[in-house]
Amino acid sequence: MAFEKAERLKQLPPYLFKEIDRLKAEVIARGVDVINLGVGDPDLPTPKHIIEKLEDAAQDPSNHQYPSYSGMNDFRVSVAGWYQRRFGVELDPLSEVITLIGSKEGIAHLPLAFINPGDLALVPTPAYPVYHVGTMFAGGESYFMPLVRENRFLPDLDAIPPDIARRAKLMFINYPNNPTGATAERDFYEKVIEFARQYDVMICHDAAYTEMGFGGYTPMSFLEVPGAKKVGIEFHSLSKTYNMTGWRLGFAVGNAEILDGLGQVKSNIDSGAFNAVQYAGIAALEGDQSCVHEMQSIYQERLNVLIAGIQKAGLQPEIPKATFYVWCPTPPGYSSKDFSALLLGKAGIVTTPGSGFGEPGEGYFRIALTVSKERIQEAVERIQKLSF
């Protein structure tokens, strides 16, 4: 029998990492020692006190039942407390915080709550693919906002045609940014809020990397800016901050009406995050934060080694103030895919071609700092031996 897939699946762009995995497997089969600087999955372990809390909570039979789709009250109170301490933002735990099975889940489900077929979402490019895919799955259309070096990898809101802005239902933004490593400051968020008010657009800020600042830089929250809560929400995750990618725990905070819509979708699609994981999340948010500072120091060391090494090789990377990504222009004469293929085939190094994140990513490749300092040193030595 032949089973035809739905049109929405046929519209999906090729899954970038599937092709990378295929090429990586071919190189490994040749006996090459591959250094994977491609996928942004932290290699550091989850801190011990978080694991211990999970172990304790998993032993409690009361946590073996269905959880609340919107999250345990204790976890939501913990999130609100963390936002107050970290950003000075006050949140009502019951109406302005919702628990997610990782922020990806919430980002993908939000368009189902607010986008009707034919509606428009403003989506950055290059970007995390879920913004566009979630919009498409809801039957909406994406209007892409280019992120280019000349504008510090921020969307040019003034360049959005008024007729497009009036059609738009929501806007996705993401700072510190994946894949470019760019950051945004108060003046940008003030312009976003003004735009949202002028055109009645919902703002959805993906803030997964705010705890990954370098050199003393501390990224801010969109919700710190007056008026932000009236127009939007912010997604956050414990994945990068506490090395909990596999645990699948995140949250969205901000506008109560928007979160209520997201909650309605979740109540019909999932059954919420495992309570024991939420107790572990409380331990993460309320516990000793020295683990976060140690994580930042480790990535800072790795960044220093990488930047010095690839600059010596003749590359001119963007130097990030946050995230664990480095966005680097390809050498003259190379496309994104060609240069990533060269690094893999000739040096056994996996990177991500920028074109996979959107058309303006052509001419760049992304490097993730998710291997040890020693392996990064080895990678840059291999790059230095290449001719390009």
Results as ranks from 00 to 15, higher is better:
residue 244 M to F: 06
residue 269 I to T: 13
residue 246 G to W: 08
residue 301 E to D: 14
residue 214 F to V: 06
residue 272 G to L: 03
residue 301 E to M: 07
residue 302 R to F: 00
residue 224 E to A: 15
residue 232 G to L: 01
residue 268 N to V: 08
residue 242 Y to W: 14
residue 271 S to L: 14
residue 215 G to I: 12
residue 282 I to E: 00
residue 211 E to L: 06
residue 233 I to Y: 00
residue 225 V to F: 02
residue 273 A to Y: 02
residue 210 T to M: 06
residue 292 V to S: 07
residue 215 G to S: 09
residue 206 D to G: 01
residue 252 A to E: 04
residue 286 E to R: 13
residue 290 S to D: 14
residue 227 G to C: 01
residue 267 S to T: 10
residue 247 W to Q: 10
residue 289 Q to Y: 02
residue 219 P to L: 03
residue 249 L to V: 15
residue 260 D to K: 14
residue 212 M to K: 09
residue 310 I to W: 07
residue 222 F to I: 01
residue 231 V to Y: 01
residue 202 M to K: 14
residue 282 I to L: 01
residue 291 C to L: 04
residue 227 G to F: 05
residue 238 L to G: 08
residue 248 R to L: 09
residue 208 A to H: 08
residue 247 W to K: 12
residue 263 G to I: 03
residue 274 F to E: 11
residue 210 T to F: 13
residue 230 K to A: 15
residue 313 A to M: 08
residue 210 T to N: 12
residue 304 N to I: 04
residue 306 L to N: 03
residue 271 S to V: 07
residue 231 V to A: 05
residue 251 F to A: 14
residue 307 I to Q: 13
residue 230 K to Y: 05
residue 214 F to D: 13
residue 279 Y to P: 01
residue 240 K to Q: 15
residue 232 G to S: 04
residue 305 V to L: 10
residue 253 V to K: 06
residue 303 L to P: 06
residue 206 D to Q: 00
residue 314 G to A: 08
residue 272 G to V: 11
residue 208 A to G: 03
residue 279 Y to H: 14
residue 304 N to A: 10
residue 272 G to D: 11
residue 236 H to G: 13
residue 254 G to Q: 00
residue 280 A to F: 07
residue 249 L to N: 11
residue 257 E to L: 12
residue 238 L to H: 11
residue 211 E to R: 12
residue 205 H to W: 00
residue 228 A to S: 15
residue 263 G to L: 14
residue 247 W to C: 03
residue 271 S to N: 06
residue 275 N to G: 06
residue 255 N to L: 06
residue 231 V to H: 01
residue 305 V to N: 02
residue 284 A to T: 05
residue 203 I to C: 05
residue 294 E to C: 01
residue 204 C to Q: 04
residue 312 K to I: 00
residue 304 N to W: 02
residue 292 V to M: 04
residue 239 S to C: 15
residue 207 A to T: 02
residue 240 K to C: 07
residue 255 N to C: 10
residue 234 E to M: 02
residue 265 V to C: 04
residue 260 D to C: 03
residue 305 V to E: 12
residue 241 T to P: 04
residue 308 A to H: 13
residue 311 Q to L: 07
residue 288 D to V: 09
residue 270 D to Q: 12
residue 252 A to R: 09
residue 290 S to F: 03
residue 262 L to W: 09
residue 215 G to K: 11
residue 273 A to Q: 13
residue 295 M to I: 04
residue 292 V to F: 01
residue 264 Q to L: 10
residue 218 T to Y: 09
residue 275 N to K: 14
residue 214 F to P: 08
residue 308 A to M: 06
residue 249 L to E: 03
residue 259 L to G: 04
residue 243 N to G: 09
residue 257 E to R: 08
residue 207 A to E: 15
residue 227 G to A: 06
residue 265 V to Y: 05
residue 251 F to P: 06
residue 251 F to G: 01
residue 231 V to L: 01
residue 306 L to F: 15
residue 285 L to M: 10
residue 283 A to R: 08
residue 221 S to A: 12
